[in-house]
Amino acid sequence: MIDSHTKILVCIGSGGVGKTTIAASFGVWGALQGKKVLVLTVDPAKRLATTFGLKADGLEQRIPFPEAQGELWASVLNSKQIFDDFVQKATEKGADTSFIMKNKLYQQLSTTLSGSQEFTALEKLYSAYESQKYDLIILDTPPTKHAIDFFKAPQKISNLFSESIAKWFKQSKANHWAQTFIQMGTQKALDILQTLTGSEFVSELRDFFSSIETWQARLESRAKKINDLLLSKETAFNLITAFDSAKIEEAKVFADLMRKSGYQLKILTINRSFPNWLPKPFNTNTGIDQFCIKLNLYYEGRLNSFNLMTRAIKELDILMLPEYDHDIADLEGLKQLVNDYKWVKNTK
């Protein structure tokens, strides 16, 4: 599982599997181990955020945890702010960034655009890593339909900001459509884009790309560094899944894919795998007993399909977490969760 080389733990998984809570619990776990831990979270449960007094301002905030030997820090990611900060830093000193900030496409890019949340989460992760202030950084990734979307996001953004695309628009601005030396294909493609979307859209795009020229070099080098960090031995991944057969099947395929791509997938977490409050049948043949048998059958059925699957997964530690009869909303709840970690070790 997590060894002393691990500086970063990335929690990934599709939406609704409990990523945020589990990421927070690893923060608590790390602090109890004596580490200085930072938890980067995207969308914390309101009550959890309130208990910890977390604000979505992107600041790193220490969470009081007196009984831990280490320190627990947290930061709620604010996609727009991180993007703006990045642009400010990447633009040459003294240059005016207000033009780009006002561009409507930039505004959409930094907030709702597919991939921008993932990119900003990784950007924040990288700057926290660079600061060398923490022993362990835990990243709770933005909700996606499918876990794999997370890995595609930085590449998507990086493609958009590649030098060629900016050049494309820049040349078309400087020389007007017909007189450029750019490839015929590209020129035609741009004409088609205009047919499809209208000239107003294309002109917004052109403004956008000419204003980002100054920082795209930095963005490209940053994207590369982030990618290297994700592939390094210092980064471990924790794939979190819910306990149903379709989700587990999906996780299995994804685990293979991650390993083939060179990511260090170390943990598979199965959330809500068994209720911590369900007794064994009473053998009294009362109505209560019947109901208890029904529930046991249901949960055992799930456990069987899980066992079949785990046999197929090697070189991966499996963490099973219980289903509670309450929501986890404070430090006590997280400590309880850490206490209930049930490991199925598959590694040597």
Binding site: Q108, T112, G115, I157, W168, G185, T186, K188, L193, L205
Partner: peptide, 20 residues
């Protein structure tokens, strides 16, 4: 025409992320 547009590397990148 549509092949020309959608098989262009640059327009593909744009479509991938172009806002909305």
């Amino acid at each position: 025409l549509y092949k020309l547009f959608f098989e262009n590397r640059i327009s593909r990148a744009l479509i991938d992320v172009a806002p909305a």
